[in-house]
Amino acid sequence: MERVSVSRVRVKPRHCDAQSMVHAIRYYEFFEDAFLDWLDRFAGGYAGVRASGADLVIVENGCEYRGSARLDDLLAVETRPARIGNRSLTMAFIVRRDEETVAEARATYVAVADGRSVPLPAPLSAAPGQQPDV
Rank of each mutant, 00 (worst) to 15 (best):
A76I: 00
G45Q: 04
L75I: 11
T108N: 08
R8P: 00
L71P: 06
E64S: 06
S117A: 15
V112M: 13
A126C: 15
E104Y: 02
G115N: 03
A113G: 10
P119T: 06
V6T: 12
D72R: 11
T101P: 01
F93A: 11
V6A: 06
P132F: 06
V95A: 07
A43I: 05
T79C: 03
P132W: 10
P119S: 03
I58V: 14
S20Y: 00
G48C: 03
A43C: 08
L39R: 06
A122F: 12
I58E: 07
V110A: 13
F93K: 09
V77F: 07
E99I: 12
G53N: 09
V112Y: 08
E29F: 06
A126R: 15
A47C: 04
R3D: 07
G129K: 13
V49Y: 01
E32G: 09
I58Q: 07
L75T: 03
R26V: 10
E104C: 08
Y28L: 11
R14A: 12
Y65I: 13
R3Y: 04
L74I: 10
I84T: 07
V11T: 03
S68Q: 13
Q131K: 15
S52K: 02
L124Y: 10
D133K: 08
A111T: 00
V110T: 09
F31N: 00
V95R: 04
A43F: 05
R26L: 02
P13H: 06
P128T: 12
Y65V: 14
A24H: 14
R70A: 13
A113V: 11
E60H: 06
S20Q: 04
E78K: 14
V102R: 01
S7T: 12
R70G: 13
Y46P: 01
V118T: 15
A51N: 00
I58K: 05
D114W: 00
D114K: 06
A82C: 12
V57H: 14
Y28C: 05
I58H: 03
V22N: 02
L74G: 04
P132C: 08
V134G: 14
A54V: 03
V6R: 10
A24P: 01
E60K: 02
V6Q: 07
L56Q: 02
F93V: 12
S117V: 15
R97K: 14
G48Y: 01
S20E: 01
V57E: 14
G44I: 01
A47G: 11
D17P: 10
R70N: 12
D133P: 00
D17M: 09
D55P: 04
G45V: 04
Y109H: 15
R83W: 07
Q19G: 10
A24V: 12
V59D: 11
P13C: 08
L36F: 13
T108S: 08
E29V: 11
V118H: 15
S52L: 00
S52N: 01
A18N: 09
E29I: 04
G85R: 03
Y27F: 15
T79N: 01
R50D: 00
A92C: 13
F93T: 09
N86F: 06
V22A: 02
F35C: 05
D98Y: 09
V110G: 04
G45T: 05
H23A: 14
S125D: 05
V6G: 01
A54K: 05
S117K: 15
S117E: 15
L74A: 06
G48N: 03
A82N: 11
V110Y: 08
S88M: 14
Y65C: 14
V95N: 07
V95E: 02
F35D: 05
H23D: 12
